[in-house]
């Protein structure tokens, strides 16, 4: 057996605990459990750190049992544990024991967006002065936004549920949807028109096209506060 064959056999010994394996010395085969458990527990622990709101909603025992099923059924694609769990919201949406909590999958999406935003690459935001210099051609500019910026739209009050676990009160009405703008370590509930505006910018449409996308949702759309937010929070990183 050569090196790469042995790696393949080791991976098989992790994934298929009940099949015979010739690569591992018989005297130490029982200890493969240690690796299986290390991997599962390392991943489950990473999920706890990435999904604090889901963890608080379900409680430790439920969350860990669910994490176990998730890690068994979903392969990791990165060994960096900060990237662990990118499919948990989808998993929760179809996992039988979480069907009693229909808002949970969307809350997981928000947790993941906040997690991603926390670790997103650093970029220096453009100063408003640079944008002001281009005032004449503003309409045709494309604004490149910070990679931490994301939008999560839900028919559930996901930001309120998130806030409830960060010192806020519980939502008054579970059936009032919320659209959430997420950036580095911050979020804001936004209306549908600004959401359409931001989404259009993210899709690299021109500023004019993005303004019209906002106005198409709400004829009274005023872009001033949305643009001020982008500039104040240094979320515009380049112009094209």
């Amino acid at each position: 057996m050569n090196y790469l064959q042995a790696l393949t056999e080791f991976a098989r010994a992790i994934n298929e605990p009940n099949t015979a394996n010739t690569a591992i010395s018989p005297a130490t085969q029982a200890n493969m459990t240690v690796y299986r458990n290390n991997i599962r527990l390392n991943r489950a622990n990473a999920l706890k750190l990435a999904y604090p709101t889901v963890l608080a909603l379900l409680g430790e025992e439920f969350f860990m049992a669910m994490a176990d099923v998730y890690t068994q059924s979903t392969a990791s694609t990165s060994a960096n544990l900060h990237q662990e769990g990118h499919l948990l919201a989808e998993f929760i949406a179809q996992f039988a024991p979480t069907q009693a909590y229909p808002y949970l999958s969307d809350v997981a999406q928000l947790d993941w967006a906040m997690h991603q935003a926390h670790y997103a690459d650093d970029h220096v935001g453009l100063s408003a002065a640079i944008l002001a210099e281009q005032a004449q051609s503003l309409a045709q500019l494309k604004l490149l936004l910070h990679p931490a910026l994301q939008i999560i739209e839900s028919k559930w009050p996901i930001a309120s549920l998130f806030a409830m676990h960060h010192g806020g009160a519980k939502p008054q009405d579970l059936y009032r949807g919320e659209c959430v703008l997420v950036w580095r370590d911050q979020y804001q509930i936004i209306d549908a028109a600004p959401a359409a505006f931001f989404l259009a910018l993210m899709q690299q449409l021109t500023l004019e096209e993005a303004l019209l996308a906002g106005a198409a949702v709400d004829a009274g759309f005023d872009p001033a506060s949305s643009l001020s937010l982008l500039l104040e929070q240094q979320l515009i990183i380049a112009l094209a």
Partner: peptide, 16 residues
């Protein structure tokens, strides 16, 4: 191995 990551420090086979 083959796009599948294992979050642990797995020993390398000291083989050819």
């Amino acid at each position: 191995l083959n796009q599948h990551a294992y979050a642990d420090l797995l020993p390398v086979p000291r083989l050819e």
